[in-house]
């Protein structure tokens, strides 16, 4: 028997098992990825059973978080999460759109790439570093400059009253804004870049100024994607644990003042790292995580549904969009 036929025979045998094997292995990997997702949901629900039996849905409407008397409720944490995330995304959205507009429409070509890279670098800074910076640099500024200023100009509103403090809702909002702006900006920027140049020319040729072109043509064409990008940024803000934990002051309670200490779902879970004293407390933390999971699933799926209707675009644009969302952890499919 010569060498060649041996080779051919092994090759043939390998090929016979190769194709189904590759298919089976890759399928198993994909199935594992899907299973992990299901397992996360299952384990969280299972882990929160104890707290659920004890507090039921009333957990969501109760303000107390008292480890000594074993009474737990999520309301003030939900409130803190909502206030910080909504205000952060409200500040971040116009800023992010403005940055994206500058990067695609106004900045000179060589500046664009550099500025775009800088904005993406802001997104890459780990949250624990922003938290550290938030305590030791931003906090003192908020306490000594920003809060006195807001109090003296807008102090007639209940939101800007109370003792000044470097940690609290206001600092958390600012840190979250810094985290969310680059995410929304880079997705929005890609969205603008996929709007065909002919549309821009069409508006300008009618005698529109650049801003009128943006408002009348560019923003409407990119609108569904922008909503999705904002939803994505909101999801990030809701889920951020570290930076918020470090700057928000970790206090239970519902206050109108933005100067007050507060806490969020994610930060409360992270803040109990040094161990909870009872099984009920542990279960209550898992209950919080379940609420967080439900919110993030709703936001994520909502964002995906928002993108769906515009998905009749040519493949090239779809890839560009996919890339934009994927970079931030969301698909345009």
């Amino acid at each position: 028997m010569d060498k060649k036929s041996v080779l051919e025979r092994t090759r043939g045998r390998l090929d016979r098992i190769g194709d189904p094997a590759l298919k089976a292995i890759t399928f198993a990997a994909a199935a594992l990825a899907v299973t992990v997702l299901g397992l996360i949901a299952f384990e969280l629900v299972r882990g929160s059973r104890l707290a659920f039996h004890r507090f039921g849905l009333g957990f969501v409407t109760s303000q107390t978080w008292d480890a000594i008397h074993n009474q737990f409720g999520a309301l003030s944490l939900i409130f803190g999460t909502a206030v910080t995330s909504i205000l952060a995304i409200a500040i971040a959205t116009p800023l992010a759109i403005a940055i994206a507009l500058f990067l695609t429409e106004l900045a000179p070509k060589p500046v664009r790439a550099l500025l775009g890279a800088l904005v993406e670098m802001l997104a890459a800074i780990p949250s624990v570093i922003l938290g550290l910076w938030g305590i030791l640099v931003l906090g003192p500024f908020v306490q000594n400059q920003l809060e006195p200023f807001l109090n003296s100009t807008l102090g007639f509103l209940p939101f800007f009253r109370g003792p000044h403090s470097g940690t609290g809702i206001l600092t958390a909002i600012l840190i979250l804004t810094i985290m969310v702006v680059p995410i929304v900006a880079s997705v929005t920027r890609e969205l603008f870049a996929t709007v065909p140049p002919e549309l821009r020319e069409g508006a300008l040729a009618l005698g529109a100024t650049r801003w009128e072109m943006v408002r009348g043509v560019l923003l409407p064409a990119a609108r569904p994607g922008i909503f999705a990008a904002v939803a994505l940024g909101f999801g990030r803000a809701v889920g951020e644990a570290m930076a918020v934990l470090m700057v928000i002051g970790s206090q239970i309670g519902i206050h109108l003042s933005l100067f007050a200490h507060s806490d969020t779902l994610a930060a409360r879970i992270a803040g109990q790292y040094n161990g909870s004293s009872t099984n009920l407390q542990t279960s209550s933390l898992v209950y919080l995580a379940t609420i967080l999971l439900v919110i993030s699933l709703a936001v994520n799926i909502g964002a995906q549904l928002l993108i769906k209707p515009i998905d009749r675009r040519p493949r090239r644009r779809r890839i560009a969009l996919d890339r934009a969302f994927e970079a931030q952890g969301l698909s345009a499919d």
Partner: peptide, 22 residues
């Protein structure tokens, strides 16, 4: 599978920490 990946990507990392803890 793609959708599962994207949803996983949107899960807060603290939730993943709790999952592995349990």
């Amino acid at each position: 599978a793609r959708m599962a990946l994207d949803i996983s990507n949107g899960i807060p990392t603290i939730v993943i920490g709790i999952f592995v803890f349990t």
